[in-house]
Design a protein around this nucleic acid. Sequence first.
DNA 1: TAAAAATCAATCAAAAACGTTCAAAATTTA
DNA 2: TAAATTTTGAACGTTTTTGATTGATTTTTA
Lengths: 248, 248
Amino acid sequence: MLTKKRHQLILELLAREEVVKMQKIVEQTGASESTIRRDLSQLETAGHLRRVHGGATANHLQIEEPSYFEKSDQHVEEKERIARAAADLIEDGMYVYLDAGTTTLAIVPYLEEKAITVVTNSLPLANTLLYHRIPTFVVGGQLKHSTQALVGYNAREGMLIYHFDVAFLGMNGVHPTQGFTTPDPEEALVKKTAIELAKQSYVLVDETKLDAISFSRVASLQAATIITTTSSEQEAKYSQYTEVVNAK
Amino acid sequence: MLTKKRHQLILELLAREEVVKMQKIVEQTGASESTIRRDLSQLETAGHLRRVHGGATANHLQIEEPSYFEKSDQHVEEKERIARAAADLIEDGMYVYLDAGTTTLAIVPYLEEKAITVVTNSLPLANTLLYHRIPTFVVGGQLKHSTQALVGYNAREGMLIYHFDVAFLGMNGVHPTQGFTTPDPEEALVKKTAIELAKQSYVLVDETKLDAISFSRVASLQAATIITTTSSEQEAKYSQYTEVVNAK
DNA sequence: TAAAAATCAATCAAAAACGTTCAAAATTTA
DNA sequence: TAAATTTTGAACGTTTTTGATTGATTTTTA
């Protein structure tokens, strides 16, 4: 079977099934496992699908699905340390903004004893805050499927009525010259607004985000303190541009 | 079964049942208990559900509402009929407001095929709409613990930028002279605002709410059509004041 | 309240899937 | 047709996922 034909068949299977196993593709095409692996790799770099362990899934024209595809197990310890360091910065009486993201989500359990008010644009955060009985305001706006966050122009407008003592933000890229970046422009707008409205902002990132650049610019490094866990070389490098808290 | 498929299945179960037992997931997926445990903790850290002893719950489950578990089948059927009647009124292209409440929640599954945009002030609604991939905007505001709704002055302000073709509202009291009423003044404000902003409003109530009066007045009966299931005498009585749809 | 049962997190070895390499086969080019 | 190039499938060491087992914890039962 021709390469082109195989690729077509794989995409057809995915259009129908959303998730398809390696084994099934091998059966249907009659090609070897190695060949299918190559096919999947190619189709992935071309942006036509997303590989997962054991097969592939449809790629619904979405740039990213971090909340789903993030290896939530992988950096869990790192995240926990970062979250604890962040929580330590929060004091009674503060008005706190918590951005969408798994790291910010990890902060919530540490907030239970504190007398604070939280504002968030994240549905999972809102649910968790509710569960921990922390007074919460939710920013209105368009509900984005992949991250379960409220984003866009309306979200920005909704935020402008608040002011925060501190803001904690997730981020996809942190780079010396390109600053803080994230894939979705509408999400970038919300993050940027949060930074504008907060007396002090913190960006929470694991090591893999350092030196990375994503599509939309949020702000320059000077705009926020970085909380991360990384080598002392990296820490020294970024300390030239802004304050860095190493939660190692 | 692939990891992603399992995750999808788990979320599907939760979208339908709100609570799901370990045992059931194991059966449905054919995977081992260990694997499901891992799945659940991954989905939890990603913010998609909440683990509980013996299984998992949708992360928007009412935390303490005894009535939740004692919902009679009869009531469920009534709600289902009301929800279906409401859904039939929604056409492609409409902008729809869905108020917080279990009856409005029951509408969502019927919306999947329709090309509409929904605005809501309810966290459970937002989660469910997200799951059904219906374009959704969430009204900002203060998160009320008991109903998981966004209420208060900020919520009203956040709503004023929208206009709706139709609004569907839950209500605690419906009375010929006292009109529509609900216990919480801040929630009443939101409902009232929704009615103001909608070309046409519908109040969804089961029979027990008729002739009842609650603390805060929302509007007079003329302001909205009532969708309910009740006797023809009651229907005739309320038809003197406003339009009544009997979903019996 | 204490014992029994069920469920849990943590651990570990087996199984499955992975990427890489390389030689054979197929295809293209000269 | 012969040489060069590309594609393929098998082999192999590595990584990821999985299910069974353990002892701890929680819930239920007596």
